[in-house]
């Protein structure tokens, strides 16, 4: 395997990966309702149209509430599970952790439908609250994975030193452990927020009468005239998620540096 050939292949692959995303800004600024070549001039009309869409802002507000709440709850649940699994051994550990991580390997449609069936059967009214219930379920495994690596790299002797110096388990957690895993927590919050914001199936089936951003975008795709404005929105969303992920990556690396670990790269 020649390195130069592989490098060319890798660059070609990155182009394939990014090509559709590059089209977003091109057609978001293109002065035509039809998404096709040749391009017909520069316009910011689609951004203006998007900006004056009050329904979109309502959907965005709901999504922000959903994603923010989901990130906080999932990260909190993640802290419990990650701390328990890295620090203690207890019966049924594998089974319990397996169940918590199960949403990672279940098609999302099955998670959404089984929740929907139960919520309808017990008469819960669908709203953005039910979306939060579902999103916490699918975000928790990511939080557990990120936080487990943060807790794993903790040196146990630091904790023991704190006990020896007279700290209680709770004050040790607050003074020693929490600051050391803080980068992991921030990274988990950001990742959960991004996943929840992006998630479609649960948001679409469990939101009831409330509009959620991803379900709103999906609905708008049915109207060809609305597509350019959605591409403008997509351009902004892509920028925002790149910024959020860069911040998450920064904190993840800082966390690794702080606990003296070696960077093995990647979120997953």
């Amino acid at each position: 395997m020649k390195a130069t050939g592989l490098r060319a292949y890798a660059i070609g692959y990155l182009i394939f990966l990014y090509a559709p995303i590059v089209l977003l800004p091109i057609f978001a600024f293109n002065d035509s309702k039809i998404i096709a070549f040749p391009l017909s001039g520069f316009t910011t009309h689609w951004f203006a149209e998007m900006w004056s869409d009050s329904q979109l802002f309502n959907a965005l507000k709901n999504s922000m509430i959903i994603s923010g709440t989901t990130a906080i709850i999932a990260t909190t649940l993640g802290i419990f599970a990650a701390r328990a699994s890295t620090r203690f051994s207890f019966p049924a550990k594998g089974g319990l952790l397996g169940m918590i991580m199960l949403p990672l390997v279940l098609p999302e449609m099955i998670v959404a439908m089984s929740l929907l069936v139960v919520l309808l059967a017990i008469g819960v009214k669908l709203s953005f609250l039910t979306v939060i219930l579902g999103h916490v379920l699918i975000c928790t495994p990511f939080a557990v994975a990120i936080l487990s690596s943060a807790f794993q790299s903790l040196d146990k002797s630091l904790e023991e030193a704190a006990y020896d110096l007279g700290e209680t388990p709770i004050s040790t957690f607050r003074l020693i452990i929490l600051p050391l895993v803080m980068p992991g927590i921030i990274s988990s919050l950001l990742i959960c927020f991004t996943i929840s914001l992006d998630e479609f199936i649960i948001a679409y089936f469990l939101s009831g009468a409330d509009t959620v951003l991803s379900a709103y975008i999906y609905g708008q795709f049915r109207f060809p005239a609305r597509v350019p404005a959605m591409l403008a929105l997509g351009t902004i969303l892509v920028l925002v998620s790149i910024i959020l992920l860069s911040i998450a990556e920064y904190f993840r690396r800082r966390g690794i540096a702080k606990t003296g670990g070696k960077d093995t790269g990647g979120f997953l």
Binding site: A81, A84, F90, L96, L102, S114, V118, L137
Partner: peptide, 22 residues
Amino acid sequence: AASGLLLISPTAIYAVLLLAAP
């Protein structure tokens, strides 16, 4: 064992109620 189970219980109960039961 008890500490571990107690600590993991919030997350595990959530998964039981919203995933295993459905």
